[in-house]
Nucleic acid binder design. Structure first.
Lengths: 104, 104
DNA sequence: TCCCTTACTACGTCCCGCGTAGCATCGCAG
DNA sequence: CTGCGATGCTACGCGGGACGTAGTAAGGGA
């Protein structure tokens, strides 16, 4: 298995982080801004860094050398694969739901 | 706002229930089966009926007259609208993520 | 020197997810 | 008519992620 769901039951913030890192390495604060633009809701530090810690433990992301008191992170290959799988699942589920809504 | 996120922070099971009801009224047990087919994971009763209760409190779904010790539920107009909005958000987020993955 | 911004750590509460157990009803086989 | 599996739901408790708040610290501009 080894899907995103292993991160615990609720993985929305984790998903957002991975999507944010999909466009290149970023440190925490920049992720907050990016996710805020992406979703309309900027996660607080508790949410963000908690999710980062779990993602790192699962080797979906990894820290780059600290620069200027910033800790950038990037996707690992594992994380990239997990993200791709999850996004396709999401897209398929959304399509199914929208189809059902349209018919009924 | 009044989006799905008001159901609490984690709403995956709630989303699945709404999608299940999008194809017509169903009672709990039938939802379990439907969701199992849809997602590959059949929710336990604790998950399911807890989410049903919250959805009913928010008037996204409503109970139909009990028949034969079965409690069918159906989507309300509010629920249908919320589901549509959520699914479009999901689809859009998935598309953005997949685009980013493809480029990088 | 003051203060705003950036960047992260620490901490505690809330409540959702999920499994387990229990209970009742129905249909069917023996 | 009796045991038994499937159906359908309620009750209950634990674990842990989500999230807000507060605190720390460095940098830059007025």
């Amino acid at each position: 298995m080894a899907g995103l769901a292993d991160l615990g039951r609720f993985s929305e913030p984790a998903l957002h982080i991975l999507i944010s890192l999909a466009s290149g390495p970023r440190h925490g604060y920049a992720m907050q801004d990016d996710i805020g633009e992406l979703t309309g809701a900027r996660p607080g530090p508790g949410t963000l860094y908690g999710a980062i810690r779990r993602l790192e433990e699962h080797a979906y992301i990894e820290a780059l050398p600290e620069q200027d008191r910033r800790k950038p992170y990037r996707l690992t290959d594992t994380g990239r694969a997990a993200l791709g799988a999850e996004l396709q699942r999401m897209r398929s589920l959304a399509a199914t739901g929208l189809r059902r809504l349209a018919v009924a």
